[in-house]
């Protein structure tokens, strides 16, 4: 588990939205550019989504799953409309100047774990 504040420090991330919600705990992270897979495999609301995709459907996916935090890797910044939609939902939005692989490694090292795989035939 890491707090979002700890995640910001560890990733050298910049806060784009949700400055007042950084004390939340993040237990799980999902690292994907494929929202179909995120929708299929994430089942814990205290999850951060790490992605390089910046369109509105990333926010919608987070909304359906009650995710708390979006982290855009490789220094990507979504446009204002996407950021405002995330803000309306109360999401914390970060951008990190590292690749997805490096971000994921740092979070894992900090104690954040991957989503369990509830899909039949796959290991938890």
């Amino acid at each position: 588990m890491m707090t979002i504040e700890q995640i910001i420090t560890a990733l050298d991330a910049r806060v784009l939205r949700g400055h007042d919600k950084l004390d939340q705990n993040i237990y799980c992270a999902c690292c994907s550019d494929l929202m179909s897979d995120v929708l299929a495999f994430v089942n814990n609301e205290k999850t951060a989504l790490l992605t390089g995709l910046t369109n509105i459907q990333v926010v919608r996916t987070a909304e359906m799953l009650d995710l708390k935090c979006l982290i855009f890797a490789r220094g990507k910044v979504p446009d204002e409309q996407v950021l405002d939609a995330a803000d309306e939902l109360g999401l914390v939005v970060l951008t990190a100047p590292r690749t997805m692989f490096t971000c994921a490694g740092i979070l894992f090292e900090g104690g954040v774990r991957g989503a369990s795989l509830p899909w039949p035939g796959l290991e938890s």
């Binding site: 550019d33 494929l34 929202m35 179909s36 897979d37 995120v38 929708l39 299929a40 992605t51 995709l53 369109n55 459907q57 990333v58 996916t61």
Partner: peptide, 13 residues
Amino acid sequence: RNYGFGAGMGLPN
């Protein structure tokens, strides 16, 4: 696919 969909998981999900 550019929007992050089309993995063939929709109906099974």
